[in-house]
Design a binder for these strands. Sequence first.
DNA 1: ACATAACCGTAACGCTTGTTATGCGAATGG
DNA 2: CCATTCGCATAACAAGCGTTACGGTTATGT
Lengths: 206, 206
Amino acid sequence: MPRTKGDHEARRRDVSEAVWRVLAAHGFGGLTLRAVAAELGATTGLLTHYFPAKRDLVAYALDLLDRRSASRPRRAGGEGLSAVRAAMLDVLPLTAEATDSNRIWVSSWDTALTDPALSDDYARKYAQSRDKLRDLIAAAQQLGELPAGDPARIAAGAQSFLLGLVVQALFAPEAFPPHRQTELLDDYLASLGSPSSSSSPSSSVG
Amino acid sequence: MPRTKGDHEARRRDVSEAVWRVLAAHGFGGLTLRAVAAELGATTGLLTHYFPAKRDLVAYALDLLDRRSASRPRRAGGEGLSAVRAAMLDVLPLTAEATDSNRIWVSSWDTALTDPALSDDYARKYAQSRDKLRDLIAAAQQLGELPAGDPARIAAGAQSFLLGLVVQALFAPEAFPPHRQTELLDDYLASLGSPSSSSSPSSSVG
DNA sequence: ACATAACCGTAACGCTTGTTATGCGAATGG
DNA sequence: CCATTCGCATAACAAGCGTTACGGTTATGT
C-alpha cells in the first residue's frame, strides 16, 4: 500500500523519527535496518532505497544526532560567565529530550572508538566544541569575571567536567537530578573564579 | 588436537587474554564467540564449555575489566591531597594498558545503557568510586589541604572531571598526552584549593 | 583396568543481519 | 495517453550470530 502522495520531505522526516526512536530505545549497537523499518511501519526495501548501504544509515544517524543536538532550544546566554554557564547547561541532560540525545551520544562512542575515521571525526568535533567554549571563557575573562590564564586550557578542563557529568547523570538519573547537576556546575564555575591555576610546569609524571 | 595436560587455570588465563585482545581491538560490541575463539586458536566448542551462554561471556568480560582495572599498579598515594591526586592519576589513560582499559570501559557503556540491570550495576559501581574519592577528600580537608565543604559533593565534581578527561583523551590522544592530562588534573586540584564553593541553594533551573 | 567424567573439536541448527533481485502500482512528462 | 521513472513491498540470498548435539580423546577415581 504505497502512499498516494509523493511527499519526499515528509517521508524523510518519518525516517528520521524512526531512526531516533530506535536509537533512544536500543542504542547505537541496536540500530538495525529491520528495527527502523518496523518502527516506521515499513520494510527494509524502503530503507535500502534511501540508504544504499548500512554505513550510510549510520552516517545519517550520526548526522541526525548532530542536527538534533544543535537544534535543541538554547537558553538566553547573556554575556561573560553567564554565557559560559548557559552553554554548559545546554549540554546537560536536564530534560527528557536532552537525556535521549546524550544517551545516544554516549552509546555512539562504542562504534566511534573502534573506527579510526569516526574517531577522528569525533576528535575534531570535540575540539571545535572546546574552541567555542574557549571563546566564551576568553570573553568572560575580558569582562573580569574570570581570572587570567590560558582560556584554551580552562576550556579543556571545563569540557572534561561537562562530559563526565553527562555520563554520571545518564547512569544515575536519580542521584543526579537537574537541580543537582546545576548545583555541581555552579560549584565548578565558582571554583574557576579564583587565581592559582595554570602555569608552573609541575613534573613527576608516571 | 586437545591439550595433553589438563591445566585448567592456565587455560582460563589464555581465555582471559583472548577476550581482552578482542575487546581492545573491536570494542564491546565486537565481542563475539568466534572472535574470541579465533584469537585463542580454538573453536566455539571450547567457549561454550566455559560459558553456557553469551551473557556469561559478557559477564565474565565485565568482571575481567573490573579485575584488570583494579589490579593495575597503583602509585604511592601519600596522604591528603597527594592521595587524591594519585587516585585520580591511576584512572587516567597515561599508559598503554590504562588506555586499553579505558577504551574497553567506555565501549561497554553502549551495552550498559540499554540494559537496566547493567545500568544499575554501573551506577552502584560509580557511586562506590565516588565514596572512595569522598573519603580521600575528607581526609585532605582534615589536613587543611582542602577548604571545607561537603566532601561528597566535591567528589561528585571531581569524578565528573576525571571521567570527562578520560573520554577526551581517548578520542584525541595526541591532543591529550600524559603530560597534558596531568597538567589539567593539577589545574583542577589547584582550583579546589580555594573557598567560595558549595552551599547557598541557587535556583532558576531550566 | 575399567567406568566415568571432563575437555574440546566438528558440525549443524535456527535466527538475525545486510544486501540484492524482482515486480507492481503510482507519479511524471512528452 | 502511453512510456518511463520513481517508490516501495515481497522475497530470497549469503554471512554471521548464539546455541546445541555428538563424538572422540584425555584425565580421574575405584
